[in-house]
Design a protein around this nucleic acid. Structure first.
Length: 438
DNA sequence: TCTGGGGTCCTAGGACCC
DNA sequence: TCTGGGGTCCTAGGACCC
């Protein structure tokens, strides 16, 4: 297995630079909505000690003193540039998983090992030429390692490409990486691991997977395997969202109900648009409102409601009516509200027919069939996988019946081979339905 | 004055069914 | 011996990601 992680450097800043070359070599930052905090920094701005997520007001003086160029965020622009980068990547390998607005995983099986470094350098150079966006490329045996390789590429290489292949070098690199810097390990889990004496990526790599599972669930166990070069996380095809959210802080404090209803209606309209764009229907709408938690001197209130529909819908006025009802339910007079949002939940495909083929049972912790009948079904499954190819088989995990709305079907993950679900050596699945979506 | 806006997955536990 | 147990469905909450 060979994966690459391609990451756009300081993406939002790089986008601004494409359209304003005078920003090159200058300290630049991009701000969040309402210009509240800093969400992207150029290398020069990072060097000035401006942290990610910093409140603008706290750094206003520093920004001015160092003549930092400051931009409000321009999401349509970033979305468009992201699309160009991703499309360009497709010229270099068919297997592209768009992971976020500025990152993609590539599947590189089938490329000759000796040709790969040059291929990656060519790719990086072409992306720069075609889009103006500088990227870094990390290559390794698993996604988790490719993430780490990408860090090395960014920090230490001159050509922006790092191949993590030499085991000796890899040991040295892992011993230098704090456990919280691993993809999937953040503060809480980092604290837990440190309490167990695991402080570096190398120590986690050498830890007992069962023990890690106890502490961090199957998700943590997968990370251990991934660090050891055993791939548990496959490349995923582009999939429809399961939930669509739209929320904003108001930019000022609001006390009257009708203004909040108005805001909720406009968020709902935005979300409904995204919903229709991906050809889905919502089965519910979740609405929340809250006061400003940073204003500790104010009385605080935060609440949410979930309204479920009898029939899944994508109709804007139905959705807005539900959101308005929710706000009426949630609103309490006497508070100064700061933020509201809606989430369209448990989305289902619009107009697709679902049909269960058969059920696999007798699956054990490994997802390996134990009895003869199940073994036969697994063998059939392999055949079906081979016949239908990627993009046709869908998988619904335990407890799910055909035609019923549920998370897995709503996820519509094309290209999932059944085996993949069981990749983690200790994944617990008792049975599964095979589903085909026409 | 000011403090983002999106998402996903996993587990535990209770209600209910046969 | 054991003296209802195993399966299903749903929700809340806690983690994580960019």
């Amino acid at each position: 297995m060979v994966f690459a992680l391609v990451d756009c450097n300081n993406f939002y800043v790089s986008c601004e630079r494409v359209f304003e070359p005078s920003l090159a070599q200058q300290p630049v930052v991009v701000l969040s909505n309402n210009d509240g905090c800093i969400i992207a920094r150029s290398d020069e701005a990072k060097a000035l000690g401006i942290p990610m997520g910093a409140a603008v007001h706290e750094y206003a003086a520093a920004l001015k003193r160092h003549k930092v160029r400051v931009f409000s965020s321009n999401y349509p622009l970033y979305g468009d540039m992201s699309g160009r980068v991703m499309e360009s990547l497709g010229q270099f390998t068919p297997d592209v998983e768009v992971y976020s607005i500025d990152e993609a995983f590539l599947g590189l099986n089938g490329f000759a090992e000796t040709a790969l470094p040059q291929h990656m350098r060519d790719m990086r150079q072409a992306i720069g030429q075609w889009t103006g966006i500088p990227v870094s490329v990390g290559v390794a045996a698993t996604k988790t390692l490719a993430k780490l390789a990408n860090r090395i590429a960014k920090k230490y290489t001159s050509d922006g490409v790092y191949m993590m292949t030499d085991p000796v070098l890899m040991t040295r690199i892992l011993s230098d990486i704090a456990v919280e810097d691993i993809w999937g390990i953040s503060r809480r889990w980092g604290e837990r691991l440190r309490a167990m004496g695991i402080k570096t990526a190398l120590q986690l790599q050498r830890a007992n997977p069962q023990q890690i599972r106890k502490a961090l669930s199957v998700v943590g166990e997968r990370i251990v395997h991934e660090l050891n070069g055993i791939s548990c996380l496959e490349l995923e095809a582009v999939q429809a969202k399961q939930n669509i959210m739209s929320s904003r802080s108001f930019g000022r404090l609001i006390s009257d109900r009708s203004s909040i209803e108005e805001a909720a209606a406009s968020y709902t309209a935005r979300a409904a648009e995204k919903l229709r764009k991906q050809n889905s229907l919502a089965t519910g709408i979740y609405v929340f409102i809250r006061t400003n938690r940073f204003r500790t001197q104010d009385p605080q209130y935060s609440n949410a409601a979930l309204i479920q529909f009898d029939e899944p819908t994508a109709d804007t006025s139905t959705l807005i009516a539900a959101a308005t009802r929710a706000i009426q339910q949630l609103y309490r007079p006497g508070f100064r509200y700061h933020k509201a949002g809606v989430m369209l939940t448990d989305l289902v495909a619009d107009g697709k027919e679902q049909k269960s083929l058969w059920r696999l049972d007798g699956l054990t912790a490994n997802g390996v069939a134990t009895d003869a009948a199940s073994k036969r079904r697994m063998a059939m499954l392999d055949q079906v996988n081979a016949m239908m190819g990627r993009g046709t088989l869908f998988h619904a995990s335990e407890g799910i019946k055909p035609g019923q709305q549920n998370r897995a079907i709503a996820a519509d993950k094309p290209g999932w081979h059944m085996r993949q679900q069981f990749r983690s050596p200790s994944y617990t699945t008792r049975w599964a339905d095979l589903i085909v979506v026409r």
